[in-house]
Design a protein around this nucleic acid. Structure first.
Lengths: 131, 131
DNA sequence: CGTGTCGTACTACATGTGTAGTAGAAACGC
DNA sequence: GCGTTTCTACTACACATGTAGTACGACACG
């Protein structure tokens, strides 16, 4: 496997665009533009530019049907999460995920009950998986 | 206090520079350059440029002593962590920290025992229960 | 003193990003 | 058919970033 979807760092705006693709599957430029116009007041042409660039970068695929262009994500949201969380971990937490959770705890972004529930979920998953 | 250290998003490289300041307090350009040269093979002038730009952005302060310049961080590592984790949360996890922890669990970046320990630590620190 | 060395200031340049305008083609409404 | 609307393609431009070269002043060494 040639690490192709590795290192998919996207900007906030790019993620917003991707989100539309993730949610809708294969929207047209106009579809995406409509969402982004509502969400952020962007112009159609701006969105078109963003999509073109994402295609050039290889994170989305474009299909042409008549005059219209339809875009489809080539990287999944989990892919991007993996990549970007890994980046954050390595740059700011010495690669230690526990330090990140610890940070969330310190910043009161998660409650103790949440950790408990997640722990249980992990155990259940591990039990099924049997790894 | 006008949110000054809010929204401190730094690139990987910039964080590497900041790390030297965080560790050493108030190193000279040469000190930082030495570290970055070893770590990433960067040239002195490159590091000087990076520091100048960080100063212009207001995240570090510069002091001149003779010919030499000394830099000091104006944002702490926790500041940057807060800001960047918040960004990541909002862009990729719908602002839900639990989803991020969940992700870490799914990606096997943390073990159940870790969650347990962290939960205990939180309880000890806060001395209260969550939901 | 003269000369190399050191350090900073300034300039440079490619690439990515945010944002959009304009031009030209295609389809639509009458 | 012709004007109107709709789309895409191309161009533009400012700003950030990664990376470094060059120039010039200050210093130290012999």
């Amino acid at each position: 496997m040639a690490g192709k979807k590795q290192d998919v760092a996207l900007s906030d705006l790019q993620i917003a665009v991707m989100r539309v693709l993730w949610e809708r599957g294969e929207p047209s430029t106009a579809d995406v533009a409509e969402v982004l116009a509502a969400e952020r007041g962007l112009k159609h042409t701006t969105v078109a530019t963003l999509l073109t660039r994402l295609e050039k970068r290889g994170v989305v695929a474009m299909r042409r049907d008549g005059r219209q262009l339809y875009y489809r994500a080539l990287v999944s949201e989990p892919d991007v999460r993996r990549s970007m969380v890994a980046d954050l971990l390595s740059s700011l937490f010495g690669g230690d995920a526990r330090a990140l959770v610890s940070h969330l705890v310190d910043e009161s972004e998660i409650a103790p009950g949440d950790l408990d529930r997640l722990r249980k979920r992990l155990k259940a998953a591990a039990g099924e998986d049997g790894t």
